[in-house]
Design a protein around this nucleic acid. Sequence first.
DNA 1: GCCAACGTTGGC
DNA 2: GCCAACGTTGGC
Length: 154
Amino acid sequence: MRYWLLKSEPDVFSIDDLAAAPKQTTHWDGILNYQVRNTMRDDMKSGDQAFFYYSSCAEPGIAGIVTINSAAYPDSTQFDRKHDHYDAGSSRDNPRWLMFDVKYQRKLKRIITLEELRRHEKKELKEMLLLKRGNRLSITSVEPSEWRFIIGLE
DNA sequence: GCCAACGTTGGC
DNA sequence: GCCAACGTTGGC
């Protein structure tokens, strides 16, 4: 079992939206980055756990915990001509982009802000990918020690 | 295969 | 809205 961090803009999709969704489950679609796609394909497994992180908002930080609820499978939005994620270079025979299912687990008691995480970036969270310079990937892995430390902050 | 131009992300 | 950092594109 591995740990991950999924970024989402809360104005677009929040942990509360996931909690209110049918079966508290949704498709995590629209990932158009090859490195992240390869991570999804090769490393993410059903049953893995992930932090739900808020980006591009007033208070960036970790808001909740979700479960990866499927293996990666073709992202249907890439075949829809009307969709923002339509990709003319992809085909059903050889899909370029993947998505997976995510299930709500719980909200954190409070948002663990980026600012708070940064207070530990010299020590406990020295290796955390989220905090590394220039990181823009929408999914990053979280080490078990980092996971435990952050849960401890809560 | 190089690299400049361009687009996107995301914190501030 | 700005801008640093990075990924992608496309001409050569």
